[in-house]
């Protein structure tokens, strides 16, 4: 165990690498989900974006968590097609802005960063809760993160709380009818499938939580 439990640039890089692995691992599943209610490119698109992020991280060494998040944002936005690029890009960009130049993020800061990401996605995508989008994973995730942070949780615990809530939120999209994005054209046929955006959001958070925890117990 190290003395610090704060989220540093190094642990943020580890979190992003883990996120990239998770997306690659679940690429086929995400693409299959998207094929059921969208245009079937979600997994491929995200995997391509995160592959680009990984290769950038091999050459660049951002000094703060905020700088890492900004690198992810700019890379995703130029490499992920469709609506996911701007949405994930905006999420990471707003997160980066909130993280600022802080060398280390504590529990409440991680929750604030997540809240900024959520607000970015909501304002960019104009989706409301229950529209069957990634917002349905993000909103409960941020609520859980904030609750955990208020109770004194460290960054890894905050991320775990968020990931758990996001997972439940994603599962809950099964019963919803899509009202945004291409899935909305399917109307009630979108009911019965998990929204791929909500699912990938949950995977990202889970991977990041795991990585930050491992990093901190090293």
């Amino acid at each position: 165990m190290t003395s610090t439990t704060g989220c540093t640039a190094a642990s943020t890089v580890a979190a992003v690498r883990a996120a990239a692995e998770a997306i690659t691992e679940h690429k086929v599943e995400l693409t299959t989900l998207d094929r059921q209610i969208g245009d079937g490119d979600h997994g491929e698109n995200l995997a391509r974006g995160f592959a680009a992020v990984l290769s950038k991280l091999d050459t660049e060494q951002p000094a703060t968590p905020g700088a890492v998040l900004k690198l992810v944002a700019t890379t995703l936005i130029s490499t992920v097609g469709g609506a996911s690029g701007p949405l994930f890009g905006t999420a990471f960009l707003r997160a980066a802005t909130t993280a600022g130049d802080e060398p280390e993020l504590d529990g409440p800061m991680v929750a604030a960063v997540l809240a900024a990401a959520r607000d970015g996605v909501v304002s960019r995508g104009k989706a409301e809760p229950q529209d069957k989008t990634m917002v349905d994973a993000l909103i409960p995730a941020v609520a859980a993160a904030e609750k955990a942070a208020t109770e004194g949780a460290d960054p890894a615990q905050v991320l775990h709380a968020a990931a758990q809530a996001a997972d439940q939120g994603a599962a809950d999209t099964t019963d919803l009818q899509a009202r945004k994005g291409r899935a909305s054209y399917l109307g009630e046929r979108s009911v019965g499938h998990v929204d791929p955006g909500a699912r990938s959001t949950a995977y990202l958070l889970a991977a990041m939580a795991g990585a930050v925890e491992t990093e901190h117990s090293r």
Partner: peptide, 14 residues
């Protein structure tokens, strides 16, 4: 169309 607006908004924000 829709995502053209999203991408443009994001480009302006960046």
């Amino acid at each position: 169309l829709g995502s053209a607006q999203l991408t443009t908004e994001t480009a302006i924000e960046f």
